[in-house]
Nucleic acid binder design. Structure first.
Lengths: 347, 347
DNA sequence: TTGTACGCGTTATCAA
DNA sequence: TTGATAACGCGTACAA
């Protein structure tokens, strides 16, 4: 690794001058010609700053700790991490992801991150919940991801679940569905409440009345199949908005048993949680994608703005990485194509 | 953060003495009483070494770079990462995960890891392939994860795909299946070839003849469903070994259309790639779990042994984190319960 | 047995 | 406009 000392030697100046120039603090302090010369030599030698050494002096490592439980078991964690990493790289930071497993390992991992001098932290849940941040993080620069601070003090990035529910339902309405069911989640998640609100709002805006019998809340297990089966029998829905793609499978199973074909006889929209369903059930399942990448990206952006005390205004929003909507599959009245949508995040 | 200097001050000795003691280099160099005193003070003050500062001196950061493409899109990446992180923590290392997206970002991330002084690298694929490690990593301490070095020079950790195929098929034989089909993968993966070998070997060991017509290779897309449908019509299999759980879905769909129930009329075993299927299709789908956690753990262990030049012999194998086999579901002749198995890794 | 002195790469201060 | 010099926290050769 080439050091400032070598550059100074080559350029015939002192290390301090090199430091000033390479940190762009040379305006009015170093003669232009000298600065240019130093920069040339640095480029020529392929100089890269040693962030660890400078951290010794500045107290900033440019490392960000990303802490989350269940990174191992939730497939969509990767999207958040990728977004966070992109933003980190963009602002010259290194993202350090640690997955925790219970409070003990959480404490241990946070301690390790602190020893390595992380400048700030991201604390991510894998679905929006009211959250108490670990006490070890109080007082540190911190942003929550897909989580809501219990005390409302910590900035967080969350997805707009209401809009997800609204758009999904609207899509079914536009497809001509008459009886639209909601296959929800029986866990007390913010997403559940908000998506249901969105579902109701979309129905209301279309002049329809909300019918409680068309909604069921299930877990992702065996009884879910029976519940969906009952829903088929009792209510004969022709459109299904599913809390996630895994739950959509139950609809597929029940439909197949009745000789119904999704995309022709009934329509299904599911929130894409696992990606593989979108692939497997394509092109008949319409999926609404959660803004995982964006949440990660935006959270890091927010954290950096806190660390560096600069506003976010002039930061341009990242381009979406999701594929564009695909509308090229056969489209009779009620056939849904595979369609991926992004939703905005609110700060 | 409490430093050696403060400890030296409190203990009334010099910093070098503190350094000697806390690095366990005090045998025959520091008086026992003094050493004990220093240790006491350090413990009392809660001293933690600053790994970045010591790296400046020693050239070792105790940071390991974990590089992988598609961390974002493959759900099982988390298992590997978790195992790797556990091992890293155990040996006093910090794992830095970076997900790459094409060669350009790969190069950029590797460069960043080098600037931060990573001591060694893990290069992971999300399914075993013949792999050329990035040229930027040649000469660095490196271990491949779920990948095979094209030149056979770089150590790697891979799962035993043959055994997976063998065991999955054996399970179907034991369940009394007469006509066992293999729904494979049409991509040229090592797993595909090896699992097929295992399938054939298990059939052979049971005195059966391999019948090519009972095997199909498909992708995870629409034509797959048609292919499985044909398989049902032509061969009437009563047992299905599926390359992964996503492919198993096609079998479920075809079965449902025919009024067949998995676990009663037919049996299905799938390799667990996405976890959510195991949950959704339980308890009728039998899944064979890949040793993701172990591969990560073992790879880091190997890497550390290379870095520290010590043998692996006295390292005890990590306890599995997988749930124990569940055999408590109803078990008539052909019903498969949800069963999670670990497979050994070979170095 | 202990302490002094130096170096790792960088940045900040201050004097020239 | 520039360059010594000290300092960050730690490790180690060498002197005491």
């Amino acid at each position: 690794m080439v050091t400032m000392k070598e550059i100074a030697h080559q350029a015939g100046v002192s290390v301090s001058t090199v430091s000033l120039v390479l940190n762009n603090r040379d305006e009015g302090r170093v003669r232009g010609a000298v600065a240019r010369h130093v920069r040339d030599i640095a480029a020529q030698l392929g100089y890269k700053s040693n962030p660890l050494a400078s951290s010794l002096r500045t107290g900033r490592t440019h490392m960000l700790g990303f802490i989350s439980e269940d990174v191992a078991t939730t497939p969509y964690a990767g999207g958040i991490i990728l977004g966070a990493q992109r933003a980190a790289r963009r602002f010259g930071y290194m993202l350090i992801v640690v997955s925790t497993d219970g409070e003990e390992s959480e404490t241990a991992e946070i301690a390790a991150l602190k020893r390595y001098g992380a400048d700030g932290f991201l604390y991510a849940k894998m679905s929006n919940r009211i959250t108490h941040a670990p006490s070890a993080l109080t007082g540190m620069p911190l942003v929550l991801v897909d989580a809501t601070d219990a005390d409302g003090k910590i900035p967080s990035v969350e997805s707009d679940e209401f809009r997800i529910g609204y758009d999904a339902t609207k899509r079914l309405i536009d497809a001509g569905c008459e009886r639209i069911a909601y296959v929800g989640c029986s866990e007390p998640l913010i997403a559940q409440a908000e998506r249901l609100r969105g579902y109701q709002a979309a129905l209301g805006d279309d002049g329809r009345k909300f019918d409680r019998r068309l909604t069921i809340d299930v877990l992702n297990n065996d009884p879910a199949l029976a519940a969906v089966d009952r829903l088929f029998n009792m209510e004969r829905p022709d459109g299904f908005f599913c809390f996630n793609d895994a739950r959509a499978w139950y609809v597929y199973e029940c439909a197949a048993r009745r000789g119904l074909t999704v995309g022709r006889d009934i329509s299904v929209v599911g929130v894409d949680n696992h990606r593989v369903f979108a692939e497997t059930l394509a092109p008949t399942l319409t999926t609404v994608e959660l803004p995982h990448f964006e949440m990660g990206y935006w959270a890091v952006t927010k954290l950096v703005s806190m660390l560096e005390d600069r506003p976010l205004d002039n930061i341009d929003w990242p381009r979406t990485t999701a594929p564009m909507p695909r509308l090229d599959s056969p489209t009779p009245a009620k056939i849904h194509c595979t369609l991926v949508e992004k939703h905005s995040v609110r700060q």
